[in-house]
Amino acid sequence: MNMKTLNKFSLSRNKALVAYLIVLLLMIIAPLVIKDAFILRLFTTTYIFSIVCFGNMLVVGYTGMLCLGFVAFYGIGSYAGALAAKELGFGFLLSVLFAGIVAAIVGFVISLPCLRLSVDFVGLITTSFLNIFLAIARNWRSLTGGPNGVTGIPRPVIFGYRIASVTSFYYLMLIFMVLSFILLNNIIHSKYGRMLQGIRDNELGAVSVGVDSRKMKIFAFTVGSLFAGIAGSLYSFYISAINPDNFIFNISTQIMQMCVLGGMGSLPGAVIGAAFFTVVPELYRSLALYRIGLGGIIMVLCMLFRPQGLLGSRAFAGDKGFADRIKRARVVAQQKKAAAK
């Protein structure tokens, strides 16, 4: 690598850093500028879903395991956090941590059978797990409150400071999202992240150079579930009442839509995806009926023209249908021009 490329490299990294800082600044001053509680609540929800998407990203985007029942870990974290606060009297931070750990343990257990079996199987096993989770949530009334769920979750109290207003929740979730972002960013850019990418793109190849793919997959699954669990418990505290219907399969689909649009493998993409699918439907409340359909059309178009999403890595895309054809046509046109001269 000569000096020119080295400089280019650090310049683009610096550009990215600057961009992140600007966006962060905007997010921090937003509540001072936007007084509309409704919009602030949308952003808060976006931050929570971003964290779930981060986790989903790690599992699906980096290991290629099709985890369709991912919302189950979100739900487990939700219930764990809620029950910890309500029944066990844990404080807020302790409940969140507890929820994350519980979800991570479950994720760990679920990942074990997924290891040596095909991608399809992972999808099915996680979907089955989701079904089982929902069945338990709906029926083990003494623990989960059945279809009514858990209500009256206490407001978070951090170091004596009680979080109840729209603005305080906004900042709380923003902080958690930023922390998750930084943590996950470090993981992805560490050697673990590269190993995971290797496994996603060419598992046999990765194994042949000494990557322990089993350990890495377990790692990804567990950490992904950890984030989902944390996000889940944050959600519990945020809306203070949860029930099984918050965690149905459609939510898993939504999470996937967010990650896909933003781009599998891209953390800022996850945030954008989460924002898009949280904010846009609300702006078009009147078209509520067509929301799902429009989301579907966006998915199809996205897959046809830009499968790697807005900010995702090209590696995810493969032969990109139309995009490749367009590129090819451009090269051919150039050559024809050159030949004609």
Binding site: D319, D324, K327, R328, V331, V332, Q335
Partner: peptide, 10 residues
């Protein structure tokens, strides 16, 4: 003939 394999000219 010029043939492309994906975006690469083969």
């Amino acid at each position: 003939i010029h043939v492309f394999y994906g975006p690469v000219e083969a």
